[in-house]
């Protein structure tokens, strides 16, 4: 195993080499870090979901044309050109995978987590979704329908998780904390308050 310290050292060595050879400017590196830490990420997706939970008209637009509804909220970025949002209900649980590689909606969820790109997740989310969900600690009723979405082509998928019981009185802003990245991939439910 490589320790975090080893990785940090290697990254620093690569960074100084790229800078010394004049291949990259320091502000470009700052821009990349700011982009993926602050501007692209599941904090955007959470705002989309919290609004869908509290605004029925927005939810209808989101399910009918996710691309336009997400752009309407200002999240317009690469890997978000053609979006589909699928809704979890007590009867239907949706789970997203890219069996061929690592396709993921960057604008709303950021870069994919390491496990999402791993061969075991890519194989088993398709062949044994209930087993994968159980390993994530996600209970699904035996008689509910599990739908797996393989984002193998040009569309990018995001799950609209069920609004958890006990969140009825919460404001849109407070709901944000209940929407996790994993719940928008479909491997987890939203957090119960």
């Amino acid at each position: 195993m490589t320790s975090d310290a080893d990785v940090a050292l290697r990254v620093r060595a690569l960074e100084s080499l790229l800078l010394e050879k004049g291949l990259v400017e320091a502000p470009a590196i700052d821009e990349i870090i700011d982009l993926f830490e602050n501007r692209l990420g599941p904090q955007n997706g959470a705002k989309v979901i919290a609004r869908a939970w509290t605004d029925p008209e927005f939810k209808a637009r989101l399910l009918a044309n996710a691309t336009d509804a997400i752009v309407e909220m200002g999240y317009e970025a690469v890997q978000g050109e053609d979006m589909v949002v699928v809704e979890n209900t007590p009867r239907i649980h949706n789970l997203v995978v890219c069996t061929l590689c690592s396709c993921f909606p960057w604008a709303t969820l950021g870069l994919p987590p390491v496990w999402y790109k791993s061969a075991p997740y890519r194989a088993r989310a398709a062949s044994d979704p209930r087993g994968v969900l159980a390993e994530f600690g996600t209970a699904i009723a035996d008689d509910a329908e599990v739908r797996v979405w393989d984002s193998n082509a040009e569309l990018r998928y995001m799950v609209l998780p069920e609004r958890p019981a006990g969140s009825e009185g919460m404001s849109e802003e407070d709901l944000l904390a209940l929407v996790t990245r994993d719940s928008m991939i479909g491997v987890s439910h939203a957090v119960t308050p």
Partner: peptide
């Protein structure tokens, strides 16, 4: 080509859909 801040900014903008 040297990678500048402007180059990075161009990379994450929507590159155009594969939809025609």
């Amino acid at each position: 080509m040297k990678i500048t801040r402007e180059v990075v900014q161009g990379l994450y903008k929507q590159t155009g859909t594969a939809r025609v």
